[in-house]
Each structure stands twice: as C-alpha cells, then as structure tokens.
Design a protein around this nucleic acid. Structure first.
Length: 449
RNA sequence: GGCGGCGUGGCCGAGUGGUUUAGGCAAGGGCCUGCAAAGCCCUGUACAGCGGUUCGAUUCCGCUCGCCGCCUCCA
C-alpha cells in the first residue's frame, strides 16, 4: 500500500482506505482567474501521478477536484476587462483544462463548481451559526476559529502563535471576535456577483466550497485530501475546522505537494509576480519533458524549472522514444514481475518517483542487454511503468514526416547501397539542414526531429 | 519573532552509519559505423563549515554560515 507523508501527523504513514479497494481523494483545484503557471503544472502532474499509480495498482479511484468560479480576482478581472465574472471564469476554465490535457493530466472523476454549491454552503454556514461556531460580523459571517478543538493542526502551530501572527487591524475593521477568525460569507458590494442568504446578498468565502463539495461527493471520512503546501494553512485548516464544527469526520490523510521555485530560489507565486507561464513553456518544449522533470524531483521538495532543465529532459525523452521504437513489439509481452515489484516498492515509499524513474532507466539498459523473451519482458515493464503508472507516453512512431524528406531518405539508402558516399553524405547534410536527425540502421535510413 | 524545511560531483536530483554504483543531462576515452547518428563499455574520487558521538559519518548529535516556506490571496 502507498505510504505518504501526512502533514497533520508529520510522518509517513500508509493510506487507510475507508472502503477496501476504493480510494476517495479530494484535491483543491484552480481558481479560474487567469492562465496557469508552472506551479500549477507541477501540482497537477503530481496528483495525476498519484491517481494513475493507484488506479494502476488496482484501486478504484474516485478523485474530486473543485473549480473555484467565484472569487475576488475573477471579479476584479471582469471589472477591469468590462465583461462578466461568469465569462472570465468560463474562459480561464477552458484554458485550464486544455493546458492540463497537453500535460497529459487526466480529468478528475468530478470537478464541481463553487457556484453550483452556493445553496449547500449557505446551509453549512447556517448550521455553523446554530452550533455556535460562526457569527455575523461587520461585513459578513465569520468562523470562530478558537471554538473548535485543535485549530492549528495543519499550521503545525499552537493557537497562541497563530493569534500572535494575525493582522489585528484588519480583524478589528471586519468586526472579528478573534484575529484568526475567517470569513464564511462576504456581503456583496454594489455590482458584485451575489446570491441571496439569511445574511443578505453576498458570496461564500473560499474555504467553505471545498468542505461542502468533498463531503457531498466523497462522503464523511474520505481517504485523502491533497493540495499545495501553501494551502495547508489557512485553507485546509479552515476546511477542517468547518467540518469539525458541524460534527462530520473529514479527511483521513492530509498530503501536500511542494512549490515550484524561481531561479532566485523564491517560491513562484501570483503575489510575487514571478510566475513562469505554463502555456509559453509548453509551446516551446515537449510537454513530456516537463512531466519528466516533475517525476525526477520528489513531490514534497521545492522544484526549480527552466529552459536548461527542460532542454536536458527533452534529450532524455528522445532516448525514451528511440527505445520505444526499438522495442515497440514488446508492448504485447508480459512485463517482468520483479521489475514491477521494485517499481512498486519505490513508489509506495512516499511516492519516490525520482528513484522509480531511475529504476526504469536501468531497466531500459537491461532490456537492451538481455536477449529474447527476457529483453521483451524488461522492455514491457519500461512501457508499463512510464505509460500506465506514470502517465508519460512514449512514441514508437515518428509522426509527421513529409514525403519529400522520406524520398530523400530512400535516395540516401540507394546511394549507400551503391557506395556513393559523396551523394549519401550530401543527402544527409540536406536533411540535417532541415532539422532532421539522420540515423542509419539495419533497415536503412530513418529520420526524426 | 514563532513554527517547519533545505544546503550532495559541471548542472538537475535520489539515497545511505562502513563493503559495489543512485538515475538523468553534459564532458572525456573506447567499441561499433564507409563517415556519422543511435547504442554499448569505461572515466569523474560529491556530500556547506566547525566540533562531538563512533572502530568508522555524507548519513546520528550540537553549533555556525547560507537559503527557503508558512504565520496574508496563492498549487
């Protein structure tokens, strides 16, 4: 069974499934207020790998990830661009899914929208007020953080230091009882999108949607809640507090993935404005190079990504594709069981993809060195590991070779057969000038980009 | 200030109290090749610094230096 680092426990523990054979997992999804940056890319590849690996391992994985389609930044952009908030959200959600598809990230089982759950959120907030965990403040409804047991669990800090770090001025302005209280319902200002509620027109705070949707779609005590490390506090802390407030068992495990850092060493974030566009990066490089980069770093470590690392990884991808072409037939073979077992051991150890990938590269060399069935079985394991378990598709065909280039390759074969080296070399130079890599194999000249 | 984490060979990036090497990329040498490419083989004697524990530490402990995250919207 997969063992992962649990933020609340501070240790690596095995998953404990609520229902044997089935994994229920919730990961906080995007706020669709702009284009995704590379941090989003890493984050989604990580959770996609968790899903794929567990599915491959034989679990029935139910993966829910929300789309926050009402939020301050969306409203701000809509106002700035003179269009509706719905319009902005719909546009960037499409960009989001398109980009994820390019990264080879599969759609979650369900991706609920915050706006579809307003009613449920209002109900949850009402119940929190009834139970004495929430109150009406200056410009909305607030959650009384100190009213629930163990607030600070995911922040890994005692209540006292959280209180010390909070911004008191803001709290007083909003009419909070404690500076660490957070908003559940924001009263609408004129012109803002709003929904009716017992506390007047407004919109939910962003912590509530995840509580309502995860419990609705996955049920009480679901197995795993994931997110970026920056969400552990306050976002996940506040989700947990609300579930606790209405007496419902929440996530059994909390797992957080590491940040992408800029060359400066600082975290890439919207607020620092140092994000790298994921779209531009995917335009310039094979998206699989990005995925490989993510796989070759541990999911909890900070990751740097840039032109040079992607270029290096494109080389690695080339090598993998060359291997795939050489061993295309091995896909039909049974993968070597021992090889898959070693892979599982590494993956189960807190999702050690760097080691798992290292092992796969070793297998690749072994497959070439081995002969007959054994080589095929080892190669089959390489395919299964990269493609089925890690979601990195290998290409065993060179696609999109134009007929003219193909004709030149044939002409080169003829020249070589006639030992006309001058002509053969000239043809090769011509092809290379057009960006083709020319290789002579037992079956003649093959070309690739 | 509080809490958490990091510092590995040219680069990226794992791991471990000592015997044999992570892995990838790059580099050098060789084999193969008409020449190449691809592939294969070999090579680099790395673990921030200073102490301590130990028969032995990159790995454990302490300190120092440097860097980062969270405490505020952010994956």
């Amino acid at each position: 069974m997969l063992r992962l680092h649990d933020t609340a426990l501070g240790t690596i523990v095995p998953l404990e499934l609520r229902d044997p054979g089935r994994l229920s997992m919730y990961v906080c999804g995007p706020t669709v207020s702009g284009e995704p940056h590379v941090g989003h890319g890493r984050f989604n590849v990580v959770w996609d790998v968790v899903c794929r690996y567990l599915t491959w391992s034989g679990l029935d994985v139910r993966f829910v990830s929300n789309v926050t389609d009402v939020e301050d930044k969306i409203i701000a952009r809509a106002a700035a661009e003179g269009r509706s908030a719905e319009d902005v959200a719909a546009h960037y959600e499409k960009v989001w899914w398109d980009t994820m598809a390019r990264l080879g990230v599969e759609r979650p089982t369900e991706s609920p929208h915050a706006t579809a759950y307003i009613r449920d959120m209002v109900d949850l907030i009402s119940e929190l007020i009834e139970r004495g965990h929430a109150y009406v403040g200056g410009d909305g409804v607030y959650f009384a953080s100190e009213s629930v047991e163990g607030y600070g669990l995911l922040a890994l800090q005692p209540l006292e230091s959280l209180r010390a770090g909070a911004r008191v001025e803001v709290a007083e302005e909003a009419g909070k009882r404690s500076p660490i209280d957070f908003v559940l319902w924001k009263a609408a200002k004129p012109g803002e999108p709003s929904w009716e509620s017992p506390w007047g027109p407004g919109r939910p705070g962003w912590h509530t949607e995840c509580v309502v949707m995860s419990l609705d779609l996955l049920g009480d005590g679901f197995d795993l809640h994931g997110g970026g490390q920056d969400l552990a506090f306050p976002h996940h802390e506040n989700e947990r507090a609300q579930a606790l407030g209405v007496g419902r068992p929440f996530a059994r495990r909390w797992v957080h993935s590491g940040m992408v850092v800029a060359d400066s060493g600082e975290k890439m974030s919207k607020s620092l404005g140092n994000t790298l566009s994921l779209l531009e990066l995917l335009d310039a490089h094979d998206p699989r190079a990005f995925r490989l980069q993510v796989l070759q770093s541990h999911y909890r470590s900070p990751m740097t990504i840039g032109e040079s690392s992607l270029a290096a990884n494109e080389r690695s991808i080339d090598r993998l594709d060359i291997f795939a072409r050489e061993f295309a037939g091995a896909r039909a073979s049974d993968p070597d069981p021992a090889a898959l077992e070693r892979f599982r051991e590494r993956m189960d150890d807190d999702l050690d993809t760097p080691n798992a990938v290292a092992g796969a590269f070793d297998l690749l060399r072994q497959a070439r060195a081995a002969t007959g069935q054994r080589g095929q079985a080892l190669a089959a394991a390489v395919f299964v590991i990269f493609e089925d378990a890690l979601g990195l598709a290998l290409q065993d065909q060179v696609a999109g070779v134009p007929p003219e280039a193909l004709a030149m390759a044939h002409a080169r074969d003829e020249a070589r057969a006639a030992k006309d080296w001058a002509r053969a070399d000239a043809l090769r130079s011509e092809l290379q000038a057009e960006g083709w890599i020319v290789e002579d194999g037992p079956d003649g000249t093959t070309i690739r980009k």
